[in-house]
Design a protein around this nucleic acid. Sequence first.
DNA 1: TTTTGTGGTTGACGTGGATCAACTTAGCAT
DNA 2: ATGCTAAGTTGATCCACGTCAACCACAAAA
Lengths: 245, 245
Amino acid sequence: MKATVPITVAGLKVACSQCNLVELCLPFGMSENEIDRLDELVGARRKIKRQQHLYRAGDPFEAIYAIRTGSFKTDVLLEDGREQVTGFQMTGEIIGLDGISTEQHSCNAVALEDSEVCVIAYSKLEELSRVVEGLQLQFHKVMSREIVRDHGVMTLLGSMRAEERLAAFLLNMSQRFTARGFSAAEFHLRMTREEIGSYLGLKLETVSRAFSRFQEEGLIAVQQKHIRIIDSAGLKKLIQHPHRS
Amino acid sequence: MKATVPITVAGLKVACSQCNLVELCLPFGMSENEIDRLDELVGARRKIKRQQHLYRAGDPFEAIYAIRTGSFKTDVLLEDGREQVTGFQMTGEIIGLDGISTEQHSCNAVALEDSEVCVIAYSKLEELSRVVEGLQLQFHKVMSREIVRDHGVMTLLGSMRAEERLAAFLLNMSQRFTARGFSAAEFHLRMTREEIGSYLGLKLETVSRAFSRFQEEGLIAVQQKHIRIIDSAGLKKLIQHPHRS
DNA sequence: TTTTGTGGTTGACGTGGATCAACTTAGCAT
DNA sequence: ATGCTAAGTTGATCCACGTCAACCACAAAA
């Protein structure tokens, strides 16, 4: 423990206009003018340690969250104990939208690593988006994007085979890392094989085998959670051509 | 062709306040006062014949639609021709939300029977929901509900076996028919086995066999598209207990 | 250093659902 | 009625993925 005065959350000026995630996050597409007005929207930041919940299914819904650092998974669990991961979220992405409909969260959000989120009180968001047109539009787009993303996952789960699913997953991760200024070809997965499997509707063994197979075929190099994509065109081809043994 | 003056869409007073679907549709939860103000929102109605498209993937996004009569399916098709049904929509449900994110529709909406929709121009919706608070909230809830529904489908596709999926599907249909004042136990499906299969991530043969099996077990009575649910508790049990052969 | 635990890999085997194919039924036009 | 077509059923076979089980790798604790 140091004896210096800690930097408190309250002491920090939290401002979207200062944040380097603007072009990924809620303010994307808004004018500078409009973004300045957002600064009253983000009340506080909240730190979540690895494996801790940001919220749980059943929690009353009060806010949505913009991820500032780190990453999360969301999952729902069925009565019988089966768990299904419904998504992985990275910096700049908005999490918690599921809670609006019933005013209770319908899934769990768990940090995959030590993370920090901006807390956006829903009541304030409603209020402000009545006045700031750009905010209204962007918020609607964020929700709509989530719907489109979910349809993509449904397609994946409903009509792709194991290796296609994993290839799609890897390309998606790569693309999202790129958007964040990281390498498209080399990255570190924050989730376990089991979590990937749950997301893709597969067992961890199947995920592991598919990774190994991709490696044998020279498409990627895997070492535990570290992935290097060698032949992204090859991965893309896998998705388009339904299975060529 | 009759020689009488046709009843034009323009001639009909289109009003949410008059509509018997209020408690299922966008106005749900809004005050009478607020609902009256919606009447300017619904510009026109549009009739769609069975098998015709309400919109197609790629169409510019201009409006969302509230289903007045009939029903629809939405689907996306992959490059290689595979098709995935992402949802079935009934009266009172809102369709077209996927278009907001990119200002282009990302899926196709096809009428399963002769149907009619209320056209809600998105620009007007934005405008009005800035002034009518209840509308803003309801619209957000509709979008959020769609996200939660999609998570449900992901769970179904990711972690349920064929018979569980079909049982869940039947119970969901039953529940939605009930909400519309129809029998919970007896209804007519508007979609083919292939469409059900596509939605559930199964082949039509598997759907057909599962129907037959449910019938043998005395859970339902099937005759083509006509379904009678005999033992809905039995169906529920099927979902909760992961497979007991 | 050894120990312990969690996550990952790999192999052998079984099975649920896909595939292929034949047949039936219902609806519709003639 | 009769023929035609799209939708549905059912059977036989196959295979992708799940299951079960052994083993390995790495990280944190002792």
